[in-house]
């Protein structure tokens, strides 16, 4: 099916009749399936500009719909509904309600960059996916996705200390998404590790609780980054005509309020 027809032919617009005669012609059954005519009036003319105003979406206007991105896409291969080319088409056409049908899977882009590698127009479809996922969240169409939770947890730890520690990020992420740490496969992995180096691992994890890895003299960088992030957020909210802030990634709380200069460092 040509891509521009995908949004016109929907199962709910298809009509078949067990028994129907029109002007003496028998149009019963599958052979005479009708498409109910549909006129689109709910365009969001601002959609493309809004996506383009978010990081990653800048080049969306360049797309010429060749399909190379979808063709090469890692996630498309296991979930056919994941279709970057189609979403870019919908965004450029302002077909917001069609885009929203797929809102719950757009965040699943794994950033493999196959699309960016394949795209002949330097659209950076991977960036468009991220911008679209942000847009959906900022507009309140989706809750914060698990991957955004992870990205924020990670970023907050980097902003706070300059470095991260994997166990710490893992713990923070599971807490944020309210998942139990004791999942069968994680337990199996922990057990395999513990089996062979009980002493070293035990020491290491105890150590990481006491002293998290950090970059020395980071306080100034931390403040500069926080100011920068807040300024960016305000700009994005303005571009999307959002009044009150929806999301505020802050540095992980290190016993001190974050936006204030901390004497601890």
């Amino acid at each position: 099916m040509p891509i521009h027809e995908k949004s016109l032919i929907r199962p709910e617009n298809l009509r078949t009749h067990e028994k129907l005669t029109i002007d003496g012609v028998d149009v019963s059954g599958h052979w005479s399936t009708f498409i109910e005519s549909r006129v689109i009036t709910d365009y969001n003319e601002a959609l493309e500009a809004e996506i383009a105003a978010l990081p990653g979406g800048e080049n969306i206007h360049r797309c010429w719909q060749c399909g190379s991105c979808t063709n090469s896409c890692t996630v498309n291969a296991i979930e056919p509904r994941f279709n970057p080319r189609y979403w870019i088409y919908l965004i450029r056409m302002g077909l917001e309600s069609e885009l929203l049908r797929d809102k719950d899977i757009i965040w699943q882009c794994v950033s493999c960059h196959k699309c960016t590698y394949a795209c002949p127009r330097d659209v950076v479809p991977e960036g468009v996916m991220k911008a679209t996922a942000h847009w959906l969240e900022m507009k309140g169409h989706t809750a914060t996705s698990p991957s955004m939770h992870f990205d924020r947890e990670f970023t907050e730890q980097v902003v706070a200390r300059g470095r991260i520690e994997d166990v710490e990020v893992l713990r923070g992420f599971f807490k944020r998404t309210r998942q139990p740490l004791m999942q069968d496969w994680l337990v199996e992995i922990a057990w395999r590790i513990a089996k062979r180096l009980p002493v070293k691992w035990g020491l290491k994890s105890a150590f990481s609780l006491l002293r998290k890895p950090r970059t020395r003299g980071w306080a100034k960088a931390r403040r500069a980054i926080e100011d920068y992030i807040h300024a960016q957020e305000e700009e994005h909210e303005k571009a999307l005509h959002i009044g009150k802030p929806q999301s505020r990634p802050r540095a992980a709380n290190e016993n001190a309020p974050v936006s204030r200069p901390s004497a601890a460092e």
């Binding site: 990653g56 955004m148 924020r152 970023t155 980097v158 300059g162 980054i225 992030i229």
Partner: peptide
Amino acid sequence: NWNCCGAMEVKNVDPKLQTY
């Protein structure tokens, strides 16, 4: 005295922060 490069996560919060 290095810091994290931003890994695969920071760019999703802000790509230029990752560049920094």
